[in-house]
């Protein structure tokens, strides 16, 4: 197969970027989009031109490293599919494929297609955890988790932190990412002790990072390679309201103020 690749090139965070077109040939239908970029980069290296910078690692859709906007859609048009899993058989031979980085104010571009998603780490650090030091856990079966609850928690926990939800959202909101973590822990008995603090702090950090608000476009759900439901966002809102009311009560009762 042959393709015309129209790809975003940008030398650095503050450089001016723009599209550049390249032709590639000999692409097999079973190759992934990233493998096509590998072919392009080999070609460029041989010509003495700088290869296109992009991030990828596991190449099986679980690490969340890769993330490109392909023909205008985060991770391309396949449902529940990461960029690294996107096979060229889904494209028409001879077509132009447009490839851009995830674009959002909170994901500054590092180079070409590589962006900085460390805002996600800071949101998790703000409360996306259950405080339990190594060695202090009770027997695992001492805390029962009904099967349906465990399954729902797993649905939310499946998030790979790729950021496609942000890239797809017209507001560049991180609500799907943040709500998936809040929901996972709100569902589980282990997550109850810090439930309010978690919701408040994570939402606060999300706002601080400059992500936009959710206005129910649901583009995030459509782009999510792991099928995370926007039902999580509804849960996050309830959790936030609930937390805002209760956390103050608890803080007052504890004399903290």
């Amino acid at each position: 197969m042959k393709f015309n690749i129209k790809v975003w090139r940008q030398a650095g965070p503050n450089a001016k970027g723009g599209f550049k077109s390249y032709a590639v040939d000999g692409i097999l239908p079973e190759m992934s989009l990233l493998e096509m970029l590998d072919v392009l980069n080999e070609q460029l290296t041989k010509q003495g031109e700088e290869p296109v910078a992009f991030d990828s690692d596991c190449r099986e859709g679980i690490c969340g490293t890769c993330g490109l906007v392909v023909n205008g859609m985060a991770h391309g048009s396949r449902l529940k599919c990461t960029t690294c899993e996107l096979r060229m058989r889904h494209f028409e031979d001879g077509a132009t494929v447009t490839i851009e980085p995830f674009r959002a104010k909170s994901f500054p571009i590092i180079k070409d297609l590589v962006v900085d998603r460390s805002a996600f780490d800071r949101i998790i650090a703000a409360g996306g955890y259950i405080s339990v030091n190594a060695g202090s856990a009770p027997d695992a079966n001492a805390v029962l988790v009904p099967k349906d609850i465990a399954e729902k928690a797993m649905d939310s926990a499946a998030c790979i932190g790729c950021g496609a939800c942000v890239a797809a959202c017209p507001n560049a909101s991180a609500s799907l990412f943040v709500s998936a973590k809040i929901t996972q822990f709100a569902l589980l008995p282990q997550g109850q002790a810090e439930r309010e603090r978690r919701a408040l702090r994570m939402v606060e950090q999300m706002d601080k990072e400059g992500f936009g608000n959710c206005s129910n476009h649901a583009e995030c759900e459509a782009a999510c390679p792991k099928g995370i439901s926007i039902g999580n966002i509804a849960t996050m809102r309830r959790e936030y309201m609930r937390a805002a009311a209760r956390y103050e009560e608890r803080a007052e009762a504890a004399g903290a103020g």
């Binding site: 190594a134 060695g135 856990a137 009770p138 695992a140 805390v143 465990a150 797993m154 926990a157």
Partner: peptide
Amino acid sequence: DQCAAQGVPF
């Protein structure tokens, strides 16, 4: 035990 307490959805 440790992982279950961290909220790993086994």
